[in-house]
């Protein structure tokens, strides 16, 4: 059974359609990352999955429970970390955790707070007021609040935004550790390197639909591939290459990138023009390139 199933979900705000026939399945015990540009509907989808708002159409199941009929049960099994930290600065870390523990009606609140604080290296700060915490510590405490009550699915909406590199790596380790403890993590992020390093599966959300889905390696492998053709010296004959085939070129005119499918045609043209080819190097696909290509292709309507 999948942790999350989304079938044909649609959501509009007035005339603006945010999610259009959205389909998605997130497996249990994995880190799933949802990527998309600002305003692509990531938070709208999270709001629907966490029972905060309703889809206009379609079906959503969390741990096999339909969201429309079992919202109460679902809320016991999920937790949400918003884009902003939800802490009360005037309280200590312990008091913040205790509020959530009491709201979840935990019987052994103190023991659970102690265990989670130890897991997230928060013990020594627990009795200090949160107003004195650094940004990274606040994020950790915010995630600790989400772990109280042992929920099965943790929704993390851009948890590392605004966090310094050192704390970002610490948060990555925490997210991996949550997954390793058997929980499902639904993550959104602006950082593609983060998605690449953390995700078991990921999806690109564009124009209200998942346009790419797979493991980071699958996505990179199946994406459009490019080669870099290097020539020995700047040559005016390069201009004979059809402009639409050149993805990019350097200022000197000695190196240019083309779609892998056009390599043979380009080489043939260059040879016919007596251009001396120095090397042809396949380009390593990064998620960033895949992401930009996907959004570019879609915005151009191709």
């Amino acid at each position: 059974m999948d942790a999350i199933t989304v079938k044909h979900v649609r959501k509009s705000f007035g005339n603006h359609s945010v999610l259009k026939d959205m389909n998605l399945a997130v497996k249990r015990g994995e880190i799933f990352t949802l990527l998309g540009e600002n305003g692509s509907g990531k938070s709208t989808l999270i709001n629907i999955l966490t029972t905060i708002s309703l889809a206009d159409d379609g079906e959503v199941q969390i741990m096999g429970h339909p969201i429309m009929s079992d919202a109460g049960l679902i809320r016991e099994n999920i937790s949400l970390n918003s884009q902003t930290v939800t802490l009360d600065d005037e309280f200590t870390g312990y008091q913040n955790l205790l509020i959530i523990a009491e709201l979840r009606l935990l019987k052994n609140a103190k023991t659970e707070i102690k265990q989670i604080s130890e897991r997230l290296n928060l013990t020594s700060f627990l009795n200090k007021k949160v107003g004195k915490y650094s940004g990274g510590m606040k994020r950790r405490l915010d995630i600790a609040m989400s772990l109280l009550g042992n929920p099965e699915i943790i929704f993390l909406d851009e948890p590392t935004t605004g966090v310094d590199p050192k704390n970002r790596v610490e948060l990555w380790n925490i997210i991996k550790e949550i997954r390793d403890s058997g929980k499902t993590v639904f993550l959104t992020t602006q950082y593609l390197d983060e998605a690449d390093k953390l995700s078991d599966h990921m999806g690109f959300l564009n124009d209200g639909k998942i346009v790419l889905y797979g493991t980071p390696d699958e996505i990179k492998k199946n994406a459009r591939r490019f080669v870099q053709i290097n020539v020995d010296s700047p040559n005016v004959n390069l201009v004979n290459l059809p402009e639409e085939m050149i993805i990019s070129k350097n200022n000197k005119g000695t190196s240019f990138v083309v779609d892998e499918r056009n390599t043979d045609i380009c080489i043939k043209i260059l040879v016919n023009e007596n251009v001396s080819i120095h090397s042809v190097v396949p380009q390593e696909n990064s998620l960033e390139e895949v992401f930009f290509n996907v959004t570019k292709i879609d915005s151009e309507g191709n």
Partner: peptide, 9 residues
Amino acid sequence: KGFLKRLHS
């Protein structure tokens, strides 16, 4: 600050 959202979930 998103606390209402957390409560609603």
